[in-house]
Simulated assay, not measured.
Amino acid sequence: MNPAVPAQYTLTYNVTDSAANVAAPVNRTVTVQDTQGPTLVLNGPATAGLECGTPFNDPGATANDLCEGDLSGAVVRTGTLNQGAVGNYTLTYNVADQGGHTAAPVSRTVAVSDTLAPVVTINGPASLAVECGDNGFQDPGAMAEDACAGTLPATPSTEVDPAVPGVVAITYSATDPSGNTGVGNTGRTVTVEDTLPPTLALLGPANQPLECGTPYNDPGATADDQCAGDLTGSIQRTGSINNKQLGAQMVSYTVQDPGGRTAGPVSRTVTVDDSLAPAIAVNGPLDQVFECGSTYVDPGATANDLCATI
């Protein structure tokens, strides 16, 4: 008989006396039965914490049966656990022996929490230079990775105005759905620099004729700077035009931006010519009546020239 194996066993008793007389055998039936279920005990605590996004190493449960011994390998776990989502999860353990007797189920609650901030990493170099006025500048930004929420957008601490020279320090941060905020260990420095001089262009021709004695109306010049914008009002003119002086005369234009970069000079040559004849005007009437034999007094005439004094 094996008391560890449920079955019905027959025990037979025999006896023979000294005269070799044999007694009739007597039988006993012994039934080994399994009526008790296994015992089931959790390994580790009934409540466990788990950081979101990290693996869960289940300590499992231990099962033992009086008849069959260790049944830990037969323990069945039910319930799901998503280590990538915050929440409370229940895992239940069951076991049954070969006789179909079950142990009272035991459960473990796993609380998945998110306590870690996202990790923020900048895209591209930590230092950038951009020419002032370059409206095509795009901040490369940063990326954020969270163990629980995955990829998250990173927010810059400030924006770069490419129209304003200076140094801009940017930090990047990201907040996960649990409210944990991560700030990048490395920020970005953007230097908006003004290295380009203004552009300066004449309005009108570079060579201009002027009739002697007529007013000179300077068409001027126009100036523009990529950083400072329209600088036409800051143009400085040197030289002057004497409209009574025949020959070539020059006026020059220069301009300077707020950073001290200069454009020019650009020049215009004005050539004063005298192409108009003087104008004559008689004094008195054009038709006169004069008495014969008397003395004639000529009232004369006057002459005027735009260029010369007559």
Rank of each mutant, 00 (worst) to 15 (best):
P125R: 12
C132H: 06
I280F: 00
V289P: 05
T151C: 06
V183W: 02
C292Q: 12
T102V: 12
P162S: 08
Q249A: 09
A228W: 14
Q208L: 15
T199P: 00
G79T: 05
T102N: 06
A7Q: 06
S157D: 02
N21W: 09
M143C: 08
T10F: 05
V112M: 02
D273T: 15
V119K: 12
I235A: 01
C132N: 03
T92A: 07
V106C: 13
T232A: 05
D230C: 14
P38G: 15
P177F: 05
T39S: 04
T155W: 06
V26S: 13
N2C: 03
G99R: 12
A117E: 15
L91T: 02
M1R: 03
I280Q: 03
T155I: 11
A48T: 10
S72C: 05
V95E: 01
A111P: 15
A103V: 12
Y9T: 10
T90N: 00
D298H: 01
G293P: 02
A174T: 01
R77Y: 15
S173Y: 01
R77M: 02
L50V: 13
V282A: 15
G87T: 09
G182A: 11
P205G: 09
L152W: 00
D218V: 11
G49T: 11
V22I: 08
V192F: 02
V272F: 14
